[in-house]
Amino acid sequence: MEEKIITCINCPMGCRMTVSMENGEVRSVTGNTCKRGETYAKQECTMPLRMVTAVVPVDGSPMPLSVKTEKPIPKASIHDCMRALADVHPSLPIREKDVVLADVCGTGVNIIATRNLG
């Protein structure tokens, strides 16, 4: 039995929740005030996901391009995702939602532009 303490992010209450885990599975969640807390705790302890946003330099543009993962990716992949972005060289013109990097780090998630450039 393993215990994790996490803070709920759903509202300003920020409940401190204790999650009991066994063999990678959630056994119980305590300390939450509402159902949303429990759902979040389970997700966070089994497969934490994060949206990643960043900027990448674009040749020929003084302004870098802002990008995001189309969907949240596993938290553990954030740094690899950033490293992969260091090697991306998008070319102008770019439209919002254009794919800048497909299937980042094998997550199945694309990185897309969040603005027009050029």
Binding site: T7, I9, N10, P12, G14
Partner: peptide, 12 residues
Amino acid sequence: GLNRNIVQCLQD
């Protein structure tokens, strides 16, 4: 700040 930001910007 929002709890979400404390968790996802600092704790992470």
